[in-house]
Design a protein around this nucleic acid. Structure first.
Lengths: 199, 199
DNA sequence: ATGTCAATGCACACTGGTGTGCAGTGTGAT
DNA sequence: ATCACACTGCACACCAGTGTGCATTGACAT
């Protein structure tokens, strides 16, 4: 099956390394240039343009990866067919590392490439809103905000906590989950009970 | 008292107009240039540099204004000597329009001028954290997060709702306040009661 | 009437990033 | 042995924004 095995593989390795490193570099500084990414990937700027014709292409590819991963997680936790609030807890637990990895996308959402990112992220937003709506329909979640807004704000809070770099402590996924559950209207006692059921 | 009355006044008018317009323009697009601001203010780019030697100077002046307004509001609501949760409600009500006005600063917090803005906004963050801490000490607020983080995340949620531009609806300060109270650990019933006490 | 000075309208130099072109080099494929 | 081609290294053009210099205009102050 691998026709041009070694040749093609090492090329894909370079490409993947650029993508991985780009997530890192842009995560630290969303305004980093193609040069910074290239250097960090141990490659020359020109080479990056060999794989991605433009900066937008790079960002788009990154976003597509993120959408794929997030959609997978959402599909899996939804497959468990549990209550919406339990599903939310499972979702946050599974999405936690992904959120940190792709933190740059949220930062870039407002900006030059916001339009492209937003449209690609649309489907994920939909799925998230669906989950919250399901919770509202079964009265697990409150209705003080429409599902679309509530899902965004709740996930935004998790994201904010996940990427907050406090001087001494490191972000606490448990506290973040509780916070998001609270704002979804889940009582604190139930929130803690849900968390204690997690493996 | 006005020595060079007309002269100096019209100069201050121009300066103030630039500042006001800058808030507007940068609020819509944080990456707008000095030229865009100048044009929107009905003035030439060179004139803006006459009042503010650099872009950073402009941003700093804007930030100083914001800090002054926010500090005033915080001082006033704290003077009422009510419970921390009631104070929070009053604070959100009073800060709501200000939040929208200075929305650009939050957007610019991550970016080139983040350092300068952050240091100027520091005192406000302190006051906010103090309020939340007070609430935690009197058991009005939950302790799932340290006061510093919780205050930031709660205010961040309010900000997110205040600046969310939904297709048809406009942001609802009441829903935003409830959301923030929930994540602070205030039970929904109490949150609604607090809001109904507001004028 | 005369001077002052904010605002104007150019000019310019500088910076920092993007994206392209092309000749050269080394390593796998044939 | 030779071809293909990913990567290099340097060149360039281009753009958009920043900040400065300076001569000019016009309203206000004296």
């Amino acid at each position: 099956m691998p026709a041009e095995s070694s040749r093609l593989r090492s090329m894909n390795e370079t490409r993947d390394r650029i993508l991985d490193v780009a997530l890192d570099v842009l995560g630290d500084n969303p305004d980093a240039g193609m040069g910074d990414i290239a250097t960090a990937a141990g490659v020359v700027r020109r080479t990056v343009y060999g794989h991605f014709p433009s900066r937008l292409d790079l960002i788009r590819t990154l976003t597509e990866r993120a959408v794929a991963e997030m959609t997978d997680v959402l599909a899996e936790v939804n497959a468990a067919a549990a209550e919406a609030d339990a599903t939310w807890v499972a979702f946050i637990a599974r999405i936690w590392p992904v959120t940190h990895r792709y933190r740059v996308l949220l930062a870039l959402r407002r900006g030059e490439y916001g339009e492209a990112i937003h449209s690609l992220l649309g489907p994920v937003d939909e799925l998230l809103a669906d989950l919250v709506r399901r919770g509202q329909d079964s009265s697990r979640f409150a209705r003080h905000l429409p599902a679309g807004t509530l899902s965004q704000v709740a996930y935004g809070a998790v994201f904010a906590i996940a990427t907050s770099d406090l001087p001494n402590e490191n972000p606490d996924p448990r506290a973040a989950t509780i916070t998001s559950l609270l704002m979804l209207g889940v009582p604190e006692t139930r929130a803690i009970a849900l968390l204690d059921d997690q493996p």
